[in-house]
Amino acid sequence: MSTENNDTKNNEPKNSEVDQYSGVETTGHEWDGIKELNNPMPRWWVYTLIVCCIWAFAYQIYYPSWPLINSYYEGMGGKTQREVVKAELEMIAEDRSVFADKIQTTDLATINSDPNLTEYALAGGKAAFGDNCAPCHGTGAAGFIGYPNLNDDVWIWGGSLDEIHYTINYGIRGVHEDTRINDMPAFLRDELLSRQEIDDLTTYVQSLSDSSIQSTPAVHEMFIDNCASCHGEDGKGLREFGSPDLTDAISLYVTDRDSIVDIISYSRGGVMPTWNGRLDEATIKSLAIYVHTLGGGE
């Protein structure tokens, strides 16, 4: 039936005519008086289509294209994006190795006096800092409570290039056997001092950096007995023990009275990871040089 219908349709006289302006036949389609000219497809367009078709076939044969049940058609060219990425990464590593190898084998002082190496180390150090250090120390290295500010001139464990390098390499209270470690006693928990004594000691510690607060010689004696072995008799700290200066304007923790009481009572001890083994030597050296230039380097 449908065939019949189609036949009759085809046999219907078409409304085509020759357009009087262009001399081209119309298709017989008309919309509100606008007639469609039966112009052929532009030849360049047809050729482009044909070329694209040929291209598409060739592409499918040459490159991986068709999914199979358990694998895929790998293509005659044997190309994969993974190989490309791998090759690119190798190329980058090779480009970098010129400087990275030099930094790896050169000592810090020499790197620091070579402008080219320093420039590379600073750029690499900045990137590595953002990736590895910023979560604790902040992107600007300004630190947080309990995480030291690396911009200032206070270094608990030392601020020379080598000391910074050592700290990054082995960490603080880290997993390496050479890690920096100290342990402040928890004077209340370990029942070394009474609450009243801790209260007096707090006043004394406050008086070290605030001249408006007065303490007594008796408490000074107590400080000498309990604290001076690490913090020094003048309370200025000792780097070899990693004990902070109690007299300066900077503190790692909050410095109101209650917090100081809490610190003396229960101790504090932050942890910095051992980066040795997690980062390569060139990166650690770059980090040391970067941190050293933040303003407090010694």
Binding site: G140, A141, A142, N149, N151, D152, D248, A249, I250
Partner: peptide, 18 residues
């Protein structure tokens, strides 16, 4: 002017800008 950190307090109480 450095914006991160905006300023740095030094141990002497001085303020430093980069």
């Amino acid at each position: 002017r450095d914006r991160n950190p905006l300023y740095v307090q030094l141990s002497s109480g001085d303020i430093r800008n980069g």
